[in-house]
Design a binder for these strands. Sequence first.
RNA 1: GGUGGGGUACCGAAGCGGCCAAACGGAGCAGACUGUAAAUCUGCCGACUCUAUGUCUUCGAAGGUUCGAAUCCUUCCCCCACCA
Length: 405
Amino acid sequence: MSADLAREMEVLSSRLVDFVAPAELEERLLRARRESRPLRVKYGADPSAPDLHLGHVVGLNKLREFQDLGHTVVFIIGDFTARIGDPSGRSQTRRPMEPDEIVANAKTYQEQVFRVLQRDRTEIRFNSEWLAPLSFADVIRLAARVTVAQMLARDDFSARHAAGRAISLVEFLYPLVQAYDSVMVRADVEIGGTDQLFNLLLGRELQKSFGQPPQVVMTLPLLEGLDGVQKMSKSLGNYVALTEPPVEMFGKIMSIRDEQMWRYFSLVQGRPDDELQALMAEVAAGRRSPRDVKDDLARAIVARFHGAEAAEAASAEFARVFSRRELPSEMPEVRLDANELRDGLTLHALLVRAGLAPTHSEARRLIAQGAVELDGRRVSDPKAVVRPAPGCVIRAGRRGFARVA
RNA sequence: GGUGGGGUACCGAAGCGGCCAAACGGAGCAGACUGUAAAUCUGCCGACUCUAUGUCUUCGAAGGUUCGAAUCCUUCCCCCACCA
């Protein structure tokens, strides 16, 4: 093996959980170079959730590594299946989508994806291109290529089958669709999260059945979300979106558990293991505070998506509001009407007016719990009537601020 | 087609005539603490101008029985499994 190839293999195989099959990748890398034909690296995206988050970045990073070596990313937007939704009814999140909605999502998708990927080495494809023209007869012929035993090889399916729980036929069809995508784009490599392993492998099987060389399969770890336990996902609400404002993004990253930040360093920022070991040792020895290390992490991530300046500003803002308990540099304004200014209003009504509490009951709770301050003075009487002067700062909890206009 | 099991608040899951706005866990929120929106501890967690043995809405839907129903009855809708 040439030194070049060895280095490429080392880069490409970093951070992987599953890698099927390294020898095939070596072979393809060699041939790609010999024939000056870049590899086609497939990645599938679901347009039902247009908000990309840090969890997606884990996979995108790997794609970017391929691009940096001159290869092509084939980014597939699963518009066809999105149009149908998930009719099995077990997940409410997958309702059928309207075509314009899909187009709109696909567009925002692309904007976000190119914060990590190189545009000129990315091919964007919609799978309706080849799925929509299929007739039912075609689908049956396609289904004939895969056996139930192959399907039951998937842990999730066999476990549910064994437990006597339901498996919809559609659930067999969707992996098949994904596998067929691999055939249609002639994927050399496909990348996904560990939860995708089965689907990716089915792509190999189907490609073989179509007389194509089977794609190399790589899976990456699923990044844990803000709760530190479950994978980052939009439906769980434990995610950090790429489009999130810098200050929010920074704060959310600071809120992950200390032990969790190493995962973020590795998976999101792609920091090499030896560097992380050294950093962990420093923290363990008490030479560096975990807070500061996490601040580095948050700054690095924010800088990547919003620029270095925004990252520094976010860090400073965070220190101001949370470490020093000072006021944020900007806060929303509440405009009170003439009557309210003249006669005053109850504090809970003010909180609701300011958008700091969704209901009066909730506002009352915040007040009673000592979360509310007016111009820095805590007010804990839920019945308090106040007549705030213009410019008065209302604080509710650690993060809720508003200023009277 | 037959048999059995289900549908409870953001999620999971108890409750099976009053003590139920509904146990418990998770999520979320707040306070204390702190090195952070870490960890830990404590509290809150349907709404209502609400110091309450208060009012209203909520336990798949609609009716009914009862002084009183998430709990009983009827019909309906939906989900799941097993046997065919």
